[in-house]
Amino acid sequence: MSDLKKLTAELDCELESILTNSDGSDEVTIYLRNYLRYSLLRRYLKWLLCISIVIAILCASIYYIPFLNWNASAIGRLALIKLVLPYYDWQHLYRSRCLIEQAKEDKFTYKDEAKGYYEFNKDKCAICEKLSGIDRISSTTYATLQSVYLSRDNPVIIDDSHAVWPNQPDVSENFIEFLFDLPDLRNSIPCNIGTNLLQVRSGNSPKLQHLLRQMSKIDSKGWFLHFRNCDFDAVKSSRLIFPLKHRPYFISSHLPPFHTSWILLSKHYNISTEKHLPVKDLVIVLQMSGTLSGRLTVRRDCKEICSDQMLKLNAGESLVFNAQMWDFYYIHNINSHANLTITTIHEIQID
């Protein structure tokens, strides 16, 4: 083997000497140079083919093997949140079905073939033109909820939705400590933050644990905080308070788990300024502690026909509405005597 290597090395040196000393005009030199170029090109193509085959096998494995698919998706989400989000705010694209906006027919519009564009159909506002308040019900079922309210895009309040905080003996009475005990939630970077705890700059959102620690520093001065859990692991952890490990009894088991959630907290924050939350899909607002006031305002041009719906949620009550029809605003209730006001909001995607 050593003799073969020695011979190969001598041939390489001899070939290099010939090519170096030759002026490149003779046929032998031209042939050798073309042969070397062809050999190098063939070697590079072999490497490129091998790499392409490996990448194709890897992609096929990720696509067809659920375990690999799930882990690749998780890594992709983490990369978007940890690496991309601090530099580019992609949150508005998170639930978009199409990245290019286009006119489309929906429940509020129709296409005028003669004019060639979409016009607003005010007949669709009939579902809310007579609505003069939000109904309160109890001991209901999802079938009733769907047929009487959701199919008509009417909001509804369930009086006996869930037990107030805390409703389990193994759960800390201190909700802030409870959040600290959930590592995936504590270490997450929330979205859509609204607070007076600190100045939150676009593209530089702090971790939730930093916001929670800030609460103790200005506890006596009064504070508020609302945020959306957009980290996949944080959403999973927040399901522990839905409320506290169990779905409300009126939510059917056939519905998918909520894809994102909100947490609203306030303490001694007696300000009547409204806060708007850009919620989506089927929305469930659960009042865990204290009182929450607010209003639902109809979207699009139905505002001229349908009036705003005022609401007040006490602990143990919940509000259910379709965010395609209604915008949600809330107020920190100045008459709430609870030490800590806790509200959770959950969004479930439905057809």
Rank of each mutant, 00 (worst) to 15 (best):
residue 6 K to N: 14
residue 12 D to V: 08
residue 20 T to N: 12
residue 21 N to P: 03
residue 21 N to K: 11
residue 22 S to D: 14
residue 22 S to V: 09
residue 29 T to F: 02
residue 29 T to I: 03
residue 33 R to V: 08
residue 44 Y to G: 05
residue 46 K to W: 07
residue 51 I to Q: 11
residue 55 I to D: 12
residue 57 I to T: 10
residue 59 C to L: 14
residue 63 Y to I: 09
residue 64 Y to D: 09
residue 66 P to K: 03
residue 75 I to D: 11
residue 76 G to F: 08
residue 79 A to G: 05
residue 87 Y to T: 04
residue 89 D to I: 08
residue 91 Q to H: 15
residue 91 Q to N: 15
residue 92 H to G: 08
residue 100 I to P: 01
residue 101 E to P: 08
residue 106 D to Q: 04
residue 109 T to K: 07
residue 110 Y to W: 11
residue 113 E to V: 12
residue 119 E to L: 13
residue 119 E to T: 10
residue 122 K to V: 05
residue 124 K to P: 00
residue 124 K to Q: 09
residue 127 I to S: 08
residue 128 C to E: 00
residue 131 L to S: 08
residue 131 L to V: 13
residue 131 L to D: 05
residue 131 L to I: 12
residue 138 S to L: 10
residue 139 S to M: 14
residue 144 T to C: 05
residue 145 L to S: 05
residue 147 S to F: 00
residue 150 L to V: 04
residue 157 I to G: 00
residue 161 S to H: 03
residue 163 A to K: 10
residue 165 W to Y: 13
residue 172 S to M: 06
residue 187 N to G: 04
residue 193 I to E: 04
residue 194 G to W: 07
residue 195 T to P: 02
residue 196 N to E: 05
residue 199 Q to C: 15
residue 201 R to V: 08
residue 204 N to E: 14
residue 206 P to N: 07
residue 208 L to Y: 03
residue 208 L to Q: 04
residue 208 L to I: 06
residue 211 L to C: 05
residue 213 R to Y: 14
residue 223 W to F: 13
residue 225 L to F: 07
residue 226 H to C: 09
residue 227 F to S: 02
residue 228 R to M: 10
residue 228 R to N: 09
residue 232 F to I: 07
residue 234 A to F: 06
residue 234 A to C: 14
residue 237 S to L: 03
residue 243 P to I: 02
residue 244 L to V: 11
residue 244 L to I: 13
residue 245 K to E: 15
residue 250 F to P: 01
residue 255 L to C: 06
residue 256 P to M: 07
residue 258 F to A: 05
residue 261 S to V: 02
residue 264 L to W: 01
residue 266 S to C: 09
residue 272 S to Y: 07
residue 272 S to Q: 11
residue 274 E to Q: 15
residue 275 K to V: 12
residue 276 H to D: 15
residue 280 K to I: 02
residue 280 K to D: 05
residue 281 D to Q: 09
residue 283 V to K: 00
residue 285 V to P: 05
residue 287 Q to C: 06
residue 288 M to G: 04
residue 289 S to N: 15
residue 293 S to H: 12
residue 296 L to F: 12
residue 298 V to A: 06
residue 303 K to N: 01
residue 314 N to F: 15
residue 316 G to R: 01
residue 319 L to W: 00
residue 319 L to T: 00
residue 321 F to A: 03
residue 326 W to Y: 02
residue 327 D to T: 03
residue 328 F to Y: 14
residue 335 N to R: 13
residue 337 H to M: 11
residue 341 T to M: 08
residue 346 H to E: 06
